[in-house]
Write a protein that binds this DNA or RNA. Sequence first.
DNA 1: ATATCTGCAAAAGATTTGCAAGGAG
DNA 2: CTCCTTGCAAATCTTTTGCAGATAT
Lengths: 149, 149
Amino acid sequence: METYSKKEESQSVLRECGLRVTPQRLAIFDFLRDSKDHPNAEGVYQAVKDRCPAMSLNTVYKNLEAFEQAGLITKFTIGDRQKFHYDPNTKTHPHLLCLSCSMVKDIDAEIQPHVCDLNEALAAQTGHQIHRIEIHLVGVCRECLQAAN
Amino acid sequence: METYSKKEESQSVLRECGLRVTPQRLAIFDFLRDSKDHPNAEGVYQAVKDRCPAMSLNTVYKNLEAFEQAGLITKFTIGDRQKFHYDPNTKTHPHLLCLSCSMVKDIDAEIQPHVCDLNEALAAQTGHQIHRIEIHLVGVCRECLQAAN
DNA sequence: ATATCTGCAAAAGATTTGCAAGGAG
DNA sequence: CTCCTTGCAAATCTTTTGCAGATAT
């Protein structure tokens, strides 16, 4: 049995980062934590303004920035897009940009060994210092492929 | 001995793509072909306006778009940047974003086998259809590392 | 001759900044 | 009570669009 609800857990996480808990902040944070694709600011706004009518797009931006600074989420661009997307999973994993539905999805395949190989090859051969590796795939997601048949 | 100069070759390439040859277009194309890092539109503009004073930033944008549509270059964003970068090498290879000098550099290491492994693993495990794979590294380039010592 | 290209200016789209009022701790 | 957060508006930055005149073929 759980001692704390999900909501209470989110509140603790935010407070530990020195962030005050407001209804808007909590709604954005909870939505992002549950999201499987990675919406941009507008997408977050559209999703949370239902549960939390007192919400402005600007507040979404400010909170996304606060979360990123706190290390709770990662901000990235993908493909030839100009918008930022936000991912609550900050460990290395690939993203797929679907050309059909325009969603950005996590790739859940077991690729860590390949990424490690790649990292070693790059470090050994190039002399650059590599902090982070981002793998972006462009294609068509499984769901869109199935829908097309 | 070469039969055609580099300039004449560029002109042929452009004409074959159905693009008219103008001084501005040729300057942009030649600069991009020789560039090792991958500038954004502003960077291209600053570089070419010396050789070609009759040059506007807007012309740079229009030509970059024309080149991309012709498949001569690739347009991409990297890291948490909002600008587009342009690469005359359209085959799969990783890019490094240097946190020190802010340049975007090609990685010339031999990674093709690793990329192939990754591609196979992803295709087999995910069911997505993968058209293109982009590998972006964030770190510090060799030159900046050396300069720091 | 005519369709394309250039350059200027304005528009568009995403994100950031400034500031006064409201709310959390 | 004090500082942080919100929401509005305006500003900023990059890229795109519209249009008239110039140029390549």
